[in-house]
């Protein structure tokens, strides 16, 4: 049941990524996906008797998520510099 809650957190992250129309909404969704996936590893580690391995994978996922958010913030700043707004429809401007 707890695994279902972790899956729901990740699933709602996907919903947030798709339905919100801004870069910050996209990053918020990524954060929830990371929360859910880290929780899945911790819970799976507990269920299978490999607690420490689960913790370490969650640690890597959390810090990997931080790097993704930093890159996302940088891209959002770039988009704002080019278009003066951060709507996800404008993201093609980043190809320039």
């Amino acid at each position: 049941m707890m695994m279902l809650i972790a899956g729901l957190i990740g699933g709602l992250g996907l919903v947030c990524m798709i339905s919100r129309q801004t870069m910050l909404g996209l990053l918020m969704g990524v954060h929830f996906l990371i929360l859910g996936s880290a929780m899945i590893f911790v819970l799976a580690g507990m269920s299978t008797g490999l607690r420490v391995q689960g913790y370490i994978f969650a640690f890597f996922i959390t810090l990997g998520g931080v790097t993704q958010l930093v890159v996302g913030y940088s891209l959002a700043i770039r988009l704002f510099f080019l278009k003066k707004r951060t709507s996800s429809h404008e993201m093609q401007a980043l190809k320039q």
Partner: peptide, 11 residues
């Protein structure tokens, strides 16, 4: 629908 599918796959 996509999010529910994700949660179902995990479950």
């Amino acid at each position: 629908l996509l999010g529910a599918g994700f949660a179902t796959v995990i479950w």
